[in-house]
Each structure stands twice: as C-alpha cells, then as structure tokens.
Design a protein around this nucleic acid. Sequence first.
DNA 1: GTCTATAGTGCGATAGAC
DNA 2: GTCTATCGCACTATAGAC
Lengths: 196, 196
Amino acid sequence: MASPDAAAVPERGSVGPSPAQARVITAALDLFARHGVGATSLGMIATELGVTKAAVYRQYKSRDEIVLAAAETELARLEAVVAAAELEPSREQARDRLLEGMVDLCVGGRRRVSTILSDPVVDGFFVEHDQFRDVMRRLRRIMVGEGAGPEGRVTSAMVIAATSGAVTHPFVQGLDDEVLRAQLLSLARRFLGLPT
Amino acid sequence: MASPDAAAVPERGSVGPSPAQARVITAALDLFARHGVGATSLGMIATELGVTKAAVYRQYKSRDEIVLAAAETELARLEAVVAAAELEPSREQARDRLLEGMVDLCVGGRRRVSTILSDPVVDGFFVEHDQFRDVMRRLRRIMVGEGAGPEGRVTSAMVIAATSGAVTHPFVQGLDDEVLRAQLLSLARRFLGLPT
DNA sequence: GTCTATAGTGCGATAGAC
DNA sequence: GTCTATCGCACTATAGAC
C-alpha cells in the first residue's frame, strides 16, 4: 500500500494512461469522430499533436494499442457513470442518475461515442473484454433489472444505441445542447416506461 | 422512350448500378460491416470478388465512388420502405408499415446498416445529399407527423438510431432473429406511444 | 471485362542521434 | 521525449495488352 500522502499525487502506475498518453488518446478520439476509426492513421494523430510519428510510437507500441486505449478511455467514462449510479440509495434514483450520465456523455461527446461504439474493430476488442462486459452487465442491471429476459436485453441495447446514435443524426443538427439533453433524457425515460 | 417490350429487360441506364456494379457494392457493404468503412480497401473488395483491382476500377473511378454508391444502395432500401408506407391508406397503417420495414432492414442487415449510418465520411456524403434529406424528411413525417418540433426531431432520430444500433449490441447476441424482430418492433411502438 | 505492370504516395514500424 | 532517416509494404490510381 502507498503512504497516506501519496494519495495527493495521482497514483497510476500499472493502470491508466500517463499524461503524454492521454494527449495521444484525446487527439485520437477527436480524429476518430471526424474521420472514423479505420480512416485515422498514426501520422494524422502525430500531426494533430504537432509531433512526428516516432514520438507517438514512444507512447504506444502499435496503432492497435492506441485504438484499444482510446476505446478503454471511453469505457472508463461510462464506468464512472455506472459506478456513480450504483451509489444511489434506491433503484429509481440509480436509474435516473444513470440516464443523466449517459445523456451527458453522448451530448458532450457528440460523434465520439457513437463512432467508437459502432466500429466493427472496436467491437471485436470489446467482445472478449472483461471490463466492458462487466460495465455493460452492471448498466443493464440498473436500467432494466436483474432477471430481465430478451425484452430487457433489447430494451437496454436500444436505449444505449438511441442515446449515442441520435446525437449525430441530421434531425438534431442545430438543436441547442440543453434542448437536446432534455429531450433525450425525457424520451429515454418514456421509453423505459418511467414517469416524465 | 423505350418500346413496350423493353420493360421486360430491366431498364436502367442513367440510374441504378449495373449488375457488375451491384456485385462490387454487395462485396463492399459486406466488408464495411466486418471491418468498417475506412478500414476497407479497394484491394480487399477485389479479393472478395476474386478479381484484381483494375477490374474494380472499371466499374467505379475511385474508392470514394464505391463508398458513395454503397451508401446510396442502403438509402435506396430505406426509400423503398418509406415509399411502401406512404401507400398505406391511414397514418396509423403507414407508421406500422414503416416500423416493420425499418426493423426488417436492420435485423436482416445486421451490422450493415449501423456501420454505414454511423461512419463520419458517409455522413459527410449524406449531409448535402438531396435524396437522403428527402427520404429522411418523408420518414419523419410518417413517424411523428408534419409539424413536430424538437421533440419530434429527437424522437425520430432516436428510433432510427435505436433500431439500427441495437442489433449489433452484445446484449442481443445469440438472440433468435424472430425474437429480436418482434422485440424491436414492440419496443419501438411503445417508444412512439403506440398501442402494443 | 479482365489481366499485368507500374507510378506515386502514404502507411506502420524501427534505428539511432540529441 | 523528440527528432531524422529509413525499411518494406499496401494503398489509390492509371496504362495498355488480351
């Protein structure tokens, strides 16, 4: 265990990206959202950061590692939302908190979330990714409960897809962020049969 | 105008892909769904078809044209669904028909629809694409009516995203197609406030 | 409509100096 | 941690024979 004082200095080490890695991830996620995952090269990331490719390779051994780390960063954001929801005293409050967090994530990230979530390569990473499965299981538990069958599975999949996918649709282009947020939240609640 | 008999031979010409082009599009859409749009090269399409790259270039002048033509093919499928719905006598029946067609498209296409729909490059094509805008406008009109404000815009965007995005989610992996189809339809109807 | 061959470019990745 | 320089390869696209 670390000494009490060590908690002040953000303790990472084996887990979590270094500041330099975080800058790579941020640039990567931005480019993914603009060009798609598969169309974003390591050189583009380097240019975005104002450095050369070799400097990027100092942070990650391969392009695939960058894609994985970027996806895991987005997953960590979702995990934080789920974890916060789990701290709520009641199921109802947990569900409310979860929906708010998800909507904020998607509206704030605009294209970021949906691009990551719908990329086939990222999906390949996630299919056997323990943390991803865990977060998704916990998310579904809050959203539709423990013993939900096919209906619960499809319902939760639709809410996730609807929230992340709707924010990129032309229909909502030009809509104020606050309006979009409120509508997404209200409609997601209605979808789950909750009082509005 | 063509002679009456010419109607037997499928008349295309200025519009719609030739049979050879259609094979390219089919291969492209399949590869897009497996690897993503940006990660699919012209060489991969050629290999999938069992020909060389030069043969593919005979059908389309550039890779971008293939992406565009593939996206337009998917759009045409949606347009057919919208057009069929518009022929229904009542608004209620039109909406039912639309939802059924959309669900069938997404379940049948699995990853195809969501990958195309969420790719940033494709989205760039579609933003100023007249037919795309027209189809979307007609779709929304059927789904939420003519004078729907922000709520209608967000609602329709969410239904589209939910339907196309949910079918690729791990939650529904292993679910029977018929069960998935029925659940998607029933839940989309509930989302729109329709009787189930 | 298919092929081979080729041009030119950009890619992922590494070596080694500073 | 950044650079320059480089390797080998795959990519888009074209030319020209069959």
